[in-house]
Computed example of a mutant assay.
Amino acid sequence: MPVKAWLQPALIGLTVLAAFIAAYIGLQRDPQPHGLPVAVAGTRLAHEVGDALGPSAHIVGVADPAAGRQALDRREVVASLSQGAGNAGDTLRLEVAGANGQSTTAIATGLVRTYAQETGQRLTVADVIPLVKFDARGLAGFYLSFGVTLAGFVVGQSVLGLTRTLPQRHRFVLIIVFSAAAGLLAAVLAGPVFGVVPAPVLPLAITLALLAAAAAFTTQMLGTYLGPIGVPVATIILLTLGNATSGAVIGARLLPSAARYISPVLPPGAAVRAVGNLSYFRSTPMLMPMITLAIWAVGAALLVAAKPKLSRTRGPA
């Protein structure tokens, strides 16, 4: 029996295992804040807080607490700090958005609380954008995106096995129809049925349909061009690295620098941001996450469509 026949599957399995552990455990074993954006009302307070928190926070100076709240609503900052007025001048008020996730909210609150204790000031904390009742840990967006990504991956892998059975246009129709159905089903289940994702059903369904198409077409594209190792590569990119760096379990700003940069450009990370914006931060622009998902879906589909033409071109040469 050739050595390659049993060695290749074993090496692929070990590589996927190592990637999974490194992504889900390695990247998240010691979350540290990296320039967490915090709005601070008042020039003097902004300078004092900035000096105290150092590189852990990025201080965004605002004119008043109302401006800080607007920045929080637009997801430009993760917290907004202001000084008490009148007799409450020795009191700090911190407004946070629990919808940003437990890890991000807890670390931002901890940083400001340490500053308040060191300066002898009282701190009151208010969660002004809380999570819904049935998503107390803020993980619904992650599980929703993970499930849709997994379903798209499975369909993409299955379609690879139908290359000799179905014409290419039929395989494309299959993925497109599946993606639309998956997006609608996931949006209805997560929203009206279970009440864990308070996003409008139609925009959420469109977002999840793009995610399913991105996962399916990317899996098919990698399998088409890379052969037997294409599916394991798709597993690492989509299911392992993409979901681990999505920012839902551990806030993206708490991940190591390399993971922070790739998080928004992979389909799961873009989808998690879009779901969060649709659910809690509806004044936040949706353009970039949707463009990211569309690029993955359409780009991978075009590459799959181009493969037969490339093969015919290389044949005569």
Rank of each mutant, 00 (worst) to 15 (best):
residue 1 M to G: 14
residue 2 P to Q: 09
residue 2 P to H: 11
residue 2 P to C: 02
residue 3 V to Q: 13
residue 4 K to F: 09
residue 5 A to I: 11
residue 6 W to K: 00
residue 10 A to E: 00
residue 11 L to Q: 01
residue 12 I to T: 15
residue 13 G to C: 09
residue 15 T to R: 09
residue 16 V to S: 06
residue 16 V to K: 08
residue 16 V to A: 11
residue 18 A to C: 07
residue 21 I to K: 00
residue 23 A to W: 00
residue 24 Y to K: 08
residue 24 Y to L: 11
residue 26 G to I: 02
residue 27 L to C: 11
residue 29 R to I: 11
residue 30 D to T: 11
residue 32 Q to N: 12
residue 32 Q to A: 14
residue 34 H to Y: 13
residue 34 H to A: 15
residue 35 G to Q: 11
residue 40 V to W: 06
residue 42 G to C: 05
residue 43 T to S: 15
residue 43 T to R: 15
residue 46 A to M: 02
residue 46 A to S: 14
residue 53 L to Q: 04
residue 55 P to N: 12
residue 59 I to Q: 09
residue 62 V to Q: 11
residue 65 P to M: 09
residue 69 R to L: 14
residue 70 Q to C: 06
residue 71 A to Y: 05
residue 72 L to T: 07
residue 75 R to H: 12
residue 75 R to F: 10
residue 76 E to R: 12
residue 79 A to C: 06
residue 79 A to F: 07
residue 81 L to N: 01
residue 82 S to W: 09
residue 82 S to I: 01
residue 96 V to N: 00
residue 98 G to I: 03
residue 99 A to T: 09
residue 100 N to T: 08
residue 103 S to Y: 04
residue 103 S to C: 04
residue 104 T to G: 08
residue 104 T to V: 15
residue 104 T to R: 15
residue 105 T to L: 05
residue 105 T to N: 02
residue 107 I to A: 08
residue 107 I to M: 15
residue 110 G to L: 11
residue 117 Q to Y: 10
residue 117 Q to T: 10
residue 122 R to F: 10
residue 123 L to V: 05
residue 126 A to M: 13
residue 127 D to P: 04
residue 130 P to H: 03
residue 131 L to C: 06
residue 131 L to Q: 08
residue 134 F to T: 14
residue 135 D to R: 01
residue 140 A to I: 05
residue 141 G to V: 10
residue 143 Y to C: 00
residue 146 F to P: 10
residue 146 F to L: 14
residue 147 G to P: 09
residue 150 L to Y: 02
residue 151 A to K: 01
residue 151 A to C: 10
residue 152 G to T: 01
residue 153 F to V: 08
residue 157 Q to S: 09
residue 160 L to P: 02
residue 160 L to T: 12
residue 164 R to T: 10
residue 165 T to H: 12
residue 165 T to K: 14
residue 171 R to G: 10
residue 175 I to L: 14
residue 175 I to P: 04
residue 176 I to M: 12
residue 177 V to I: 12
residue 178 F to G: 01
residue 182 A to Y: 04
residue 187 A to R: 09
residue 187 A to F: 05
residue 190 A to I: 04
residue 191 G to N: 05
residue 194 F to W: 12
residue 196 V to K: 01
residue 196 V to I: 15
residue 196 V to L: 03
residue 198 P to L: 08
residue 198 P to W: 07
residue 202 L to I: 15
residue 205 A to S: 12
residue 209 A to F: 07
residue 210 L to H: 03
residue 212 A to S: 12
residue 213 A to H: 05
residue 217 F to A: 03
residue 223 G to I: 06
residue 223 G to A: 05
residue 225 Y to F: 15
residue 233 V to N: 04
residue 233 V to Y: 01
residue 238 L to C: 09
residue 245 T to P: 11
residue 248 A to M: 08
residue 249 V to M: 01
residue 250 I to M: 10
residue 253 R to D: 15
residue 254 L to H: 02
residue 255 L to I: 05
residue 256 P to T: 01
residue 258 A to H: 06
residue 267 P to L: 01
residue 270 A to W: 02
residue 273 R to G: 05
residue 276 G to C: 01
residue 277 N to L: 00
residue 278 L to V: 07
residue 281 F to T: 07
residue 281 F to N: 05
residue 282 R to P: 08
residue 284 T to F: 12
residue 284 T to R: 14
residue 287 L to Q: 08
residue 288 M to I: 13
residue 288 M to S: 14
residue 289 P to M: 06
residue 291 I to E: 01
residue 298 V to C: 01
residue 300 A to N: 04
residue 301 A to H: 02
residue 303 L to H: 02
residue 305 A to D: 11
residue 305 A to Y: 06
residue 313 T to E: 15
residue 313 T to W: 15
residue 316 P to V: 14
residue 317 A to I: 15
